[in-house]
Amino acid sequence: MMDAQELNQLWQLYQLKVTDDIAKSPEVLFCNGSAIGTLGNFSASTGKAKSKKTFNVSSILAAALTNGEVLRYIAEFPDDKRTILYFDTEQSPHHCQRIMKRALRLAGLPVDRHPGNLIFAQLRALTPDLRLELIDNAIANTPNVGLVIIDGVRDLMFDINNAIESSRLIGKLMEWTDKYQIHIHTVLHLNKSDDNVRGHVGTELNNKAETVLQVCKSTTDSEVTEVSASCIRSMDFPPFAFIVNEAGLPEIASDYTFAGKTKIQTFSYTELTPEQHRQALEMAFADGAIKACQNCEDSIKRAYAACGFPYGDGKVTKLKSFLMNKRMIVRENGTYSYNPKFYY
Rank of each mutant, 00 (worst) to 15 (best):
Q276G: 02
P250K: 07
E226G: 00
S167T: 14
V330D: 01
R124A: 11
F87Y: 13
M1I: 10
N117L: 03
S254Q: 11
P239K: 07
Y336I: 05
D88H: 01
M328A: 11
N67A: 08
D88M: 04
L213W: 09
Y304D: 04
T186I: 09
G202T: 05
C31T: 12
C216F: 12
G248W: 12
Y338P: 08
N161H: 13
N339M: 01
R278M: 10
R233I: 02
K179C: 01
S337Y: 02
K81F: 05
H94D: 13
S58G: 14
F242G: 02
G199K: 14
D80N: 15
E6R: 09
F237C: 02
T66Q: 09
D236H: 08
H189A: 03
M2P: 07
T225W: 06
N161P: 08
I150T: 01
M235W: 06
L85K: 02
H189K: 12
Y256M: 09
K24I: 11
A62D: 02
V215E: 01
T211D: 00
E175W: 13
F242L: 14
G312K: 12
L272T: 05
G171R: 04
I22F: 11
A138I: 08
Y343Q: 11
M157E: 10
I164N: 10
V224T: 09
W11P: 00
N144T: 05
Q276A: 13
Q5I: 01
L147F: 04
Q91A: 12
T89L: 07
D287M: 13
V18D: 09
T317S: 15
Q294R: 13
T317V: 11
R331L: 07
E332T: 13
N295M: 02
T273M: 10
A306R: 14
V148Q: 09
I149S: 06
F77A: 04
P238Q: 07
N67I: 10
V153Y: 06
P250A: 04
L85G: 00
A286Y: 11
S228P: 00
F237T: 00
I74K: 10
I290R: 03
V57C: 03
S254K: 14
S254D: 10
K192C: 07
E69H: 14
D79L: 07
V18I: 12
G202M: 09
A125F: 04
A209G: 02
C231F: 09
A44S: 15
F158Q: 15
L109D: 01
C296E: 05
N207H: 04
T203M: 08
I243Y: 06
V70C: 03
N137L: 08
L71K: 12
N144V: 03
N141C: 03
D3Q: 06
Y269Q: 12
K52Q: 14
Q97T: 12
L65M: 05
